[in-house]
Amino acid sequence: MIDKDKLRKADVFSGTLIVLLGFVIISQALKMPMKDSYAGVQNVWYVSPALFPMLVGAMITLLGLLLVRTAIKSVGKAGIQQVFDYFRSPDFNEFLKAHTTIRFYGIVLTLFVFVFLLVPRIDFFLGAILFLLIFFFMFYCGTDEDLPRLILMIVTGTFVLGAYILTGLAGKIDEIIPFSADYLVLLFIVILVAYYFKKLKTNPELFKKFKLSLLIGFLAPFTIGVIFKYFLLVPMPFEGVVVYLLDAVWYAEIWS
């Protein structure tokens, strides 16, 4: 949590957002049937589906206003002006470039890419390996200085993979090579590993961490995935080339 003084300044803005949310809730609730009939039922105000959202919206608005009032009382107009000045100052630029901020971008970007791009479209095992390796290289064997470059690699990879899938190219190539997007992700994994291998091989301490990262990066998805897929019988979100191979091994006739 940030310190009290900064918190009060931030409260002015978060409180305003909360008031706006309250208004949105109330405005949406006003569109719901109040006294008019819905689905053949004549409404009265106290059974209206709008009643509870209106109450919640009103409370959110009221509490948001109270928060803004408390914050303004605490920091005064000068405090709010300081916030606007801060956004225009070099300090804000420094904050945006600080290691902790860049780490935050890296974490959120990786999570979003994994959830919105990889999980629904790429073999779960490959996606999970890439996800883990990125995190391990970001925070375990990589340094903060490497982070911007790694983030650039993620952005580039996302654009390439996104374009490959969303332009329909993947669908066409899949007719010749099934699960072609999986191979593209496999290629990203190889590039990532090769890059860090080259970068870290001269540093024995980091190289040891690199080897451990590789081991866990490959082992963990297989352990988790196999438990969910074959013991808990949960189908993977997207079953691609690795699941296809695992299925062939798991359900092979030789075991029976």
Binding site: A128, F131, F135, F136, S213, A220, I224
Partner: peptide, 20 residues
């Protein structure tokens, strides 16, 4: 840094598996 990303994977597969 080694176990938190694994927790991330568990959060994701866990959320998905409830209702697929």
């Amino acid at each position: 840094p080694l176990f938190m990303p694994i927790i991330g994977i568990l959060c994701i597969i866990g959320s998905y598996s409830l209702g697929l």
